[in-house]
Write a protein that binds this DNA or RNA. Structure first.
Length: 644
RNA sequence: GCCAGCGUAGCUCAGAGGUAGAGCAGCUGAUUCGUAAUCAGCAGGUCGUAGGUUCAACUCCUAUCGCUGGCUCCA
């Protein structure tokens, strides 16, 4: 079933629109207008829909919309200029450097440069230093238009074959050039008026990148940097990057003893430790229940199926690069990369009547996919993972309701974990099966379900599965990064390939429609997202350990054991601390392991029969808590969170 | 898969052509402790793996595996 893997993180910076509109007379220079009117932080302007430099003198009266550097467009211009300034710095330090492209991107900018060798941290520092010098020199950005021929001559003469190729691909007769100081670059613009406008920036990293993303082309050096309108914004962003690092699920996974990955075992294969496995099973058990509530039935297909079957489904033709195959007694088998075939076989195990549709088959299905070595990443991109996978077989007229049912399910689950999300529809890709008519039907079904329930969505052309279009759900975590988890796919082709049928009210054989869907997607990936979302501080309802019982000294171990057993008996996930350490140290251990509650037991508690309770990350603690009150509050907190 | 960087104890990391070191965790002992680190001792590594150069390799070279950052890919 659907791809539950592969998502990217991103951090959208909220735009603060601060524009100044005014009428400007013919013959005016915009920069002078800005200065005269003491407009602050203006970096460019918009005239009848077009962005222009401030270094522009207009030749007729115009309504001018001045663009603030803090505005979404303003910051983009600033970053784009930053990439030019970086290129200038690189040219100073590496006179033979050849330049490819240098755009602004979300949260920063980059430039792809052919330097003839790879860059290191020191180079980055030096480039940044040179950039500061260039900024201080305050070179104006000067625009001029050249004919394509002149532009080609310029870059041919410079030996910059990448620019030559880019210019050759431009359709227009003229191209624009920007020069600041001794550096000239092909560029559409606009740019900041002069280099001194770039105040707050930092180079972040360097990595290889192919020219135009083509692996047959030479690998260039891509230097990433970021720039902001204010020092605070830059500092906040750098702090955000630190926070991302701190929350890295690979780091927390090790620290919290949730899972490990070992070369001897194999790349992309997860070894779940007791706490990680507990976390998984809490989520899985909860989800199983939710499926039962919603009329799903549990099924389970085999892990390997004959290759013939994968040929029939189209997986062999369209997906074999990602599959593992094995041979048993001379017969070829494919290890399942998706669960649909098993579920199809369940459907086919009996003759179906319209009366029993829809059939909703659910399985926590383990799938194997051969992901290329370079893309593996912690739990986010692995070679073996579990999907909360279901296939709904229904009559065409039931499709709309079924998709809405799944959308509601997604909504409920995301609310449980506190995720906002957005949705997009992916349409027919090039490499696909089925007729245009089937694709249109399926795509419309998805759109209708979203529109009938007033749900917002975007369209992502050509990104569907090979057997059908899909709705992808992108969730947004606590740091504003988005991840793909749920996906809902509409499929008319597999029912046909496997000749699935049901008997309608008139005794006629009809073809059912199939909906492939996951809610959390890959359990592995979802847990990675949860770890980073909560920074390892899991809410009580999924915390692998909810309470740690800490005796003040070893004298109190026996009493602590009794309390621990009581908690365990009523289903609270408790642990007993018996290491021979001071109370402070034992509390430190619990804090580092991010355990929600610590119960301290010493002479006082034995005397009073009450508990002393400390809550994670909270200074101080509560004394004289009744055991029953504590248990009730734990249960309540757990139920409020989802009742797991 | 491609490019670059990196692989030293369970973890975090130092070191360096003469043959490994710290902190934390672990174990043992002492301490019996009141809300984020008690003290002492012990143990733990063929320095990712395999070749090569050298009197000598953890250090240099080659290959290979893995990891990291990107690129490409993610039906």
């Amino acid at each position: 079933m659907p791809d539950a893997q592969g998502a990217t993180g991103s951090n959208p910076v909220p735009p603060t629109i601060q524009r100044r509109k005014m009428k400007v007379k013919s013959g005016s220079n915009l920069l002078e207008i800005v200065k005269k009117n003491k407009l602050k932080n203006i970096v460019a302007a918009r005239i009848s829909g077009h962005l222009v430099d401030l270094n522009t003198t207009i030749d007729k009266d115009e309504d001018v919309d001045f663009i603030n550097v803090e505005d979404e467009e303003g910051i983009e211009i600033l970053r784009h200029s930053a990439s030019h300034i970086m290129a200038q710095a690189v040219q100073h330090l590496f006179p033979n450097a050849k330049f490819a492209i240098g755009p602004a991107i979300e949260n920063g900018f980059y430039y792809d440069i052919d330097i003839g060798r790879s860059l290191n941290e020191d180079d980055l520092k030096n480039i940044e230093k040179e950039m500061k010098r260039i900024v201080g020199a305050n070179y104006p950005f000067q625009r001029r238009e050249l004919s394509k021929q002149e532009a080609l001559d310029y870059f041919r003469n410079k030996g910059d074959e990448y620019k030559v190729e880019i210019i050759n691909d431009i359709d227009e007769d003229n191209v624009s050039f920007y020069t600041q100081g001794d550096f000239t670059d092909l560029c559409r613009g606009p740019h900041i008026p002069s280099t001194i406008y770039l105040k707050y920036f930092k180079l972040l990293s360097v990595a290889g990148a192919y020219f135009r993303g083509d692996e047959k082309r030479p690998m260039l050096q891509r230097i990433y940097g970021t720039a902001f309108a204010t020092k605070k914004a830059l500092d906040d962003y750098l702090a955000f990057l630190q926070e991302v690092k701190k929350r890295d699920h690979r780091k927390l996974g090790r620290e919290l003893d949730l899972f490990s990955i070992k070369d001897e075992v194999g790349p992309g294969l997860i070894i779940w430790h007791p706490k990680g496995a507990m976390l998984r099973s809490l989520i899985e058990d909860f989800e199983k229940n939710e499926h039962i509530k919603r009329g799903y039935e549990f099924v389970k297909g085999p892990e390997i199926l004959r290759t013939e079957l994968w040929k029939r489904s189209g997986h062999f033709d369209h997906y074999k690069e990602n599959m593992y195959f094995t041979e048993v007694e001379g017969q070829s088998y494919g290890i399942k990369p998706m669960n649909c075939l098993g579920h199809i076989e369940v459907y086919k195990s009996s003759k179906r009547s319209y009366r029993e549709l829809p059939k909703r088959y659910f399985e926590l299905g383990v799938v194997h996919r051969h992901e290329k070595s370079g893309v593996l990443h912690g739990l986010l991109r692995v070679r073996e993972f579990t999907q909360d996978d279901a296939h709904i077989f229904c009559m065409p007229e039931q499709l709309n309701d079924e998709i809405i049912g799944v959308l509601d399910f997604v909504q409920d689950m995301m609310k449980l974990f506190g995720f906002d999300y957005s949705m997009e529809i992916s349409t027919r890709p090039e490499d696909s099966i089925g007729t245009d008519e089937q694709w249109e039907l399926a795509t419309n079904a998805l759109i209708k379900a979203l529109e009938n329930t007033n749900r917002q969505y975007d369209i992502n052309e050509g990104d569907g599965a090979f057997y059908g279009p899909k709705i992808d759900v992108k969730i947004k975590d606590a740091l504003g990064r988005s991840w793909q988890c749920a996906t809902i796919q509409c499929d008319f082709t597999l029912p046909e390939r496997f000749d699935l049928t049901y008997t309608d009210a008139n005794g006629k054989e009809e073809r059912p429609v199939m909906v492939h869907r996951v809610i959390l997607g890959s359990i592995e990936r979802f847990i990675a997202v949860l770890i980073e979302h909560y920074a390892g501080d899991f809410p009580l309802f999924i915390a692998p350990v909810q309470v740690r019982v800490v005796p003040v000294s070893s004298k109190h171990n026996n009493y602590a054991m009794k309390i621990y057993n009581k908690l365990k008996d009523i289903g609270i996930r408790a642990e007993l601390e018996t290491r021979n350490e001071t109370v402070s140290k034992k509390i430190r251990f619990a804090e580092k392991e991010k355990i929600p509650y610590v119960i301290i037991l010493g002479d006082e508690e034995i005397q009073s029969g009450k508990l002393s309770v400390r809550k994670r990350k909270k200074k101080g603690y509560l004394k004289n808590i009744d055991m029953s009150d504590f248990i009730n509050s734990i249960k309540e907190e757990s139920i409020a969170g989802g009742g797991i």
